[in-house]
Each structure stands twice: as structure tokens, then as C-alpha cells.
Amino acid sequence: MWLFPGDPDPLAIRPTVAVIADERGSVIVDAGQSPAHAREIRAGLAAAGLPAPRWLVYTHHHWDHVWGACAWPEVEIVGHEAGVAPLRAEARRPWSHRHLRETVRAEPRLGPSYRARALAVDSWDGFAVLPPTRTFTDELTLPTGVRLRHVGGRHASDSTVVLVPDSQVLLLGDCWYPPPAHLRGPAEGPDLAMAAGLLTDDVRWYVSAHDAPLSLAEARAALTG
């Protein structure tokens, strides 16, 4: 398994992307937060000599996890069915820097997210928001043995965790994070009960999208400390 680490600056909103390389066809987990980000990941894959992905898995529908998908035209996009409707709605919006500015003027609470989007996208030529082309409801195992499980939660209704059995890695996306800032109440924090429920001796490493990977021991200590 190969990780393209996220940006440690929280204002960048640039998550970690994972690739599970396999001779049967590689799986990329999350698309990158822009076509430019996806192109960096492509270059990294080529430099590492890893096979191109055949499947792209969305951990959830938020922009920073899906906006790079249009730069992966050859892959099958897999996501939970609850993400289809919001992504179709996003796909109909007239994305441009002008649209971002006008939306923030109308809804100032969206400012941090929309400013990050404006910085992420260098060109809107060919840009598109893509819903999944293959959906599931509860669990799905890809031909490579990678397992997807819907966990939902307050961050996103379609949150999905991705288990890589051979590596004993669980990719968490943002599933245990609080709701996005513009939807978050003043007392809402991380979903620690969900995080604790995902701990198991069958997993050695836990990888969240905006934090450093944690070993099982580190994750247990973080939740009990």
C-alpha cells in the first residue's frame, strides 16, 4: 500500500490519498481535492513504478475527497449510495472562481471551504464533479480483496471505511471527525465512540484523511488518554 500524504496545514484542506497496488488492478482511495492534486498523485505513482488504478473509492462525498476524480477518466468510481444525490447536486453547480465568490457573499459561513476550493483549482477547463458509477449499501469487496464498509456518522452520511486485509490497514476517511465547520454546533467534537468501535486486533494501522497514521496501540492510547 502507498500513501500520498495530505497537507498538514488545515486551511489547505488537502487529504491523504491511498493506493493499494495489486497485479489484479490497483485501487485508489479518494480522488484528491482537485485535478492538480490528482496529477501530482499520478506523477507519484509513475515515479514509484506502481500500476495505474482501476477503481477509485470515495470515502465520502465532500469536495476535498472527490474533486480530483475528473483527472482519473479510466477508473470505475465506487461509493456509497447516500453520496449520489449530493454529488449530482454539486455537479449541476456552475463552478468557477466567480461562482465561489458570489456564493461566499451570499453565505459567509462557507468562506473557509470555498476559499480553499479557489486555491485548489488552477483551471476550470474540463472540471466536473463525478458521482460514483458503482454504489453499495452496507459492504462491498473489490476483486483485489479490498473491503468497503459503510459507517455513516455525523461528518457525512455516506462515510465509508476501507480495509486492506493484506496490510492490516484501515483507511478512515473523515468518518470520526465532527461535521464540517459550516454545519458544526459549538459543542460538537470528534465521534470518539465511532473511533473506538473501529479498533480491532485485526488492524495494525489506522489512517485518517487529515491526521498522521496511528498504530493500533497509539490509537487506543489516544482514545483512553
Rank of each mutant, 00 (worst) to 15 (best):
V19G: 01
A31C: 10
R149K: 14
P8Y: 06
R98M: 00
D30K: 08
S208D: 08
Y206H: 01
L214P: 04
P190K: 11
D22V: 00
W63C: 07
P180D: 11
R109Y: 07
R24D: 09
A196L: 08
T141E: 15
G79H: 00
A46Y: 00
W67H: 12
A48M: 04
M1V: 09
S157E: 14
G126N: 02
A181T: 13
G44L: 00
C70S: 15
P143F: 10
D166N: 08
A221H: 12
R115T: 14
L45G: 07
Y114C: 05
V17Y: 02
E76N: 00
A21Q: 00
M194S: 05
P180V: 15
W67Y: 10
V75I: 01
D191Y: 01
Q33N: 11
R115L: 12
R147S: 12
P178H: 02
H65V: 09
D9N: 15
A71W: 09
R204G: 12
V169M: 09
P108F: 13
T141N: 12
Y206L: 08
V164I: 04
L110P: 09
V19T: 10
P108E: 08
V104N: 01
T224M: 06
P5D: 03
G225R: 11
A156W: 04
H61S: 08
P108A: 14
A18E: 01
A82F: 13
E76A: 05
L110C: 10
L214N: 03
S157Y: 01
S159G: 05
R154W: 03
L170E: 10
H61D: 05
R105Q: 12
S157N: 07
A36H: 04
D7E: 11
V17D: 02
P86G: 05
P179Y: 02
E74S: 13
D158N: 13
C70R: 08
V78W: 13
R39N: 09
G185P: 06
A181L: 14
H97M: 00
L50A: 11
I13Q: 12
H97C: 03
D158Y: 00
A217V: 04
G185H: 03
C70L: 13
E74V: 00
P165M: 06
F136P: 07
G225E: 02
T160P: 06
S34H: 07
A48C: 04
H80Y: 10
G152F: 00
Y177F: 14
L56W: 02
A209W: 06
A52D: 06
G225L: 11
A48K: 09
G32C: 05
T200V: 02
L45P: 02
L198C: 06
P213N: 10
D138T: 13
A69T: 01
G83I: 05
A47G: 12
E218L: 14
A36W: 01
W63P: 02
D22W: 03
H80R: 09
D9L: 05
D122G: 13
V161Y: 09
V164F: 03
L198N: 02
A48H: 07
V207A: 00
G6T: 04
P132D: 14
P112D: 15
G68V: 04
D30M: 10
A48Q: 12
I20P: 07
E139K: 14
L199N: 05
G83V: 05
I41D: 00
D9P: 10
W95N: 08
V161N: 11
I20F: 12
D22A: 04
Y58E: 03
V164Y: 02
D211Q: 11
D166K: 15
H99M: 06
W55H: 13
W55V: 02
V121D: 06
G25K: 06
A69K: 06
A82V: 08
P51K: 07
